[in-house]
Amino acid sequence: MTASPASGGLTDGLRMAIADWLDLERALKAVSENTITAYRSDVTGWLSFLMHHHGDGFGTGKIADLTITDMRSWMASERARGLGARSLARSLSAVKTFTRWIAERDGFDATGVLSARSPKFGKKLPRPLTADAAQDMISTVELQSTEPWINTRDAAVLTLLYGCGLRISEALSLTGKDVPLGEIIHIVGKGNKERIVPVLPVARRAVADYVRECPYNLEANQALFRGKRGGALNPRLISKVTERARMQLGLPSTVTPHAMRHSFATHLLNAGGDLRAIQELLGHASLSTTQAYTAVDTARLLEVYEAAHPRAKNA
Rank of each mutant, 00 (worst) to 15 (best):
P235A: 15
E243N: 09
T130D: 09
Q279K: 12
D70C: 08
L281H: 14
L114Q: 08
L143D: 04
A277T: 08
A171E: 06
P148F: 02
N270F: 03
I138K: 02
M75L: 03
E243G: 05
L24G: 13
F225Q: 00
A285F: 10
M75R: 03
L129M: 15
R90F: 03
L302I: 13
R90W: 06
G189W: 07
Y293H: 10
T37V: 13
R195G: 09
P215R: 08
E213G: 06
E213V: 01
A292M: 14
D109W: 12
G59M: 00
T99H: 06
S77C: 02
R204A: 04
V113M: 14
A30K: 14
S41F: 06
A315F: 12
A76L: 09
A89C: 01
E25V: 15
T242I: 05
G8N: 13
S73M: 02
H258I: 10
A232C: 07
I187C: 14
V211D: 04
G13E: 15
G59E: 10
G272A: 01
F58A: 04
A203T: 00
V188C: 08
P198F: 04
G122R: 15
F121L: 06
E213T: 05
S139K: 09
V31Q: 14
D65S: 11
Q279T: 04
K120I: 09
A110S: 09
K96V: 00
A30C: 13
I150V: 06
V304N: 08
N314Y: 01
S169M: 07
L174T: 06
K62H: 14
Q248S: 06
I63W: 07
A131W: 14
N314L: 00
D297F: 11
L200Q: 11
S253A: 15
F121Y: 15
A17R: 13
E142H: 10
T35V: 14
K62W: 13
W21Q: 14
S239C: 08
G189H: 07
A27F: 15
R226F: 10
H262G: 09
T294R: 06
G176P: 03
L233E: 03
V113R: 12
T37H: 15
A94E: 03
L268N: 03
M247F: 11
G182I: 02
A299S: 15
A308D: 08
Q144E: 10
L172E: 12
P126K: 10
T99E: 08
Q135V: 11
I196W: 11
T99I: 00
P201C: 03
R90N: 02
R81P: 01
H53I: 07
A265G: 06
E147R: 09
T130V: 11
G61L: 11
P252E: 08
T35M: 15
R40C: 06
R195F: 13
R276C: 08
G57P: 05
